[in-house]
Structures are given as C-alpha cells and as structure tokens.
C-alpha cells in the first residue's frame, strides 16, 4: 500500500494495485489520473495515519515519502516500509522520477511493466517534441494564482518545470526558487518585457481576472498585450512519472492551440 500519492500513481501506472492509499477521497481531485481502483482502502490523512486500519489490512509493503520518515520505525512494526523521494534534484529532467519508478517496480515484481511504461513515455516525448518543433516556440512562464495579488511561479526541480525541460522547452523564470521548486511572488514581479507565454495552472481564484484587468501595469505588459496567456487543467505538482505524463499532454495540447 502507498502512503504517498506520487508512489501510488506510479504503482498503478506499472500495473500494480495498492491495497490502500492515504486520503483516497482527495486523490481524484488532485492527481486525477491514473484513477484509483474503486476498492482501494482509504488510510486516513497523511498527517494522521489510521494505524489501526493499516494494521488490520496486513500489507506486504508500505511505500512512504521522506515526510513520513519519522514514522518508519512505527510502520515497520506492521510491514517493511520503503522510503522513496520525488523531491530529489535530478541531473537530467525526470531522471529521478524514472529511477524511483524502476526501484519501486523491483520491489513489487513489475520491472518488466516499468520498462514498458518508461519506453512509452520516451515515445510520448519524441512525439511531443516533434509536434512542438513545428511551432514558433517561446519561453514558458508557469504559474498558479494564489489570490488577487500573489502567484506561485514554478522553476527548479518542480514537476512542472522538469516536464517543461523534458519537452525541450525553455522556462521564463530564471530566478531562484524554494526547496520544492516554486516561489511565492507578488504579481508585479511577473512583469517582464520578454516574449513569453504565460501558462496558469488551475484552479484560478474567481476575482483574479478583474484584479489583473484593472491593473494598468499588467495591461501594458508585452505578453499580455499579445494575449499570450492561458490556463490549463491541473496535474499533481508533487507527483511522479504519471503526473509528468499528464502534465506534458495537457501542456502540449494547450501550446498547440496557442502557437499555431
């Protein structure tokens, strides 16, 4: 069973069914795909695991993220636990997530399926880059709006930025970002003269459109004037390979529409 969504989705992608997942009810809202098998047990909140339930289900292996490392000795009393981190910085885009997929597969006897899955992703990448090559490409500014004055901007080792690089695209954000690959900024800090494409990940607060349209500064920005801004459906930001797959598909089809 998986106590981390990134590991749960990876398991499903390589054809294994987790007996239980934390916060299974919210999984569909944040991770969206691949969907959980309907009979997956809900193990409680990640911050407040339902140990009784985990013990009663008698798992063979427990997958945890570094944030549950503190509980490893406790969980080991139930079944061996394996700590895999998607937050490591990798040398080439997505390399760490690929490595995790392989390691996880080796523990659940699905190495064959994992290789197949990774090959499929390589094909997806080749196809996507080919499609993007035909278009007039620009640096992409990846953000999500927090409220009517602030946004998160993604860079570094975040899933979004890594997927962007994996697709051979350039990120428009070169300034440093926090440990988890994003930084909170005031909207005015997004102001740039460069020819960029702004992609906002949903959800977008309802009053942001009005706030932006009433800002003279925002209206004067070159990329706003050229209407190079749009939004895409969310993918799980702290996810593994499947979330990267989903995000790249969403992004490529979005950019194809915009960059005709």
């Amino acid at each position: 069973m998986a106590l981390d969504w990134a590991l749960a989705e990876t398991m499903i992608a390589i054809g294994r069914r987790p007996a239980g997942v934390v916060a299974a009810a919210d999984y569909a809202k944040f991770v969206i795909e691949p969907a959980l098998p309907p009979d997956t047990a809900d193990l409680g909140l990640q911050q407040e695991l339902n140990f009784e339930l985990i013990a009663a289900l008698r798992p063979r292996l427990i997958l945890i993220s570094p944030f549950l490392q503190r509980l490893k000795p406790t969980l080991d009393r139930i079944a061996p636990s394996l700590n895999l981190s998607v937050y490591e910085v990798s040398e080439t885009p997505l390399a760490n997530r690929i490595a995790i997929t392989r390691e996880l597969a080796s523990h659940v006897d699905a190495s064959q399926a994992a290789e197949t899955y990774i090959r499929r992703l390589d094909a997806l990448r080749a196809d996507s880059t080919a499609r993007l090559a035909k278009l007039q490409r620009r640096p992409v500014l990846l953000v999500s709006f927090i409220d009517n004055r602030h946004a998160r901007v993604y860079g570094g080792s975040s899933l979004y930025a890594e997927t962007l690089a994996w697709l051979g695209l350039e990120s428009a954000w070169s300034k440093p970002v926090g440990n988890f690959g994003f930084e909170t900024v005031g909207l005015e800090q997004l102001a740039t003269l460069a020819d960029v494409e702004l992609v906002a990940v949903e959800p977008v607060p309802p009053d942001i459109t009005y706030a932006l349209s009433s800002s003279p500064l925002w209206k004067e920005l070159p990329f706003v004037k050229a209407k190079r801004e749009g939004r895409i459906a969310p993918a799980f930001m702290f996810g593994g390979l499947p979330s990267a797959e989903r995000f790249s598909k969403l992004l490529v089809s979005h950019l194809e529409e915009r960059w005709i």
């Binding site: 911050q47 409220d147 909207l187 706030a211």
Partner: peptide, 23 residues
C-alpha cells in the same frame, strides 16, 4: 487538513504582503 492540504499557499494572505499592481 481536511479540505485542501496542498493549497496551503492560500494562507499567504495571513502574513500581510503589501505587494501592489495598481492604484
């Protein structure tokens, strides 16, 4: 904890940022 664990950034408002984009 119950609703939206990963949208904690929403609570940024609580910390009082003066950043402005218009008058």
């Amino acid at each position: 904890l119950l609703k939206d664990r990963y949208l904690i950034g929403l609570f940024i408002w609580g910390s009082g940022s003066l950043s402005q984009q218009s008058w």
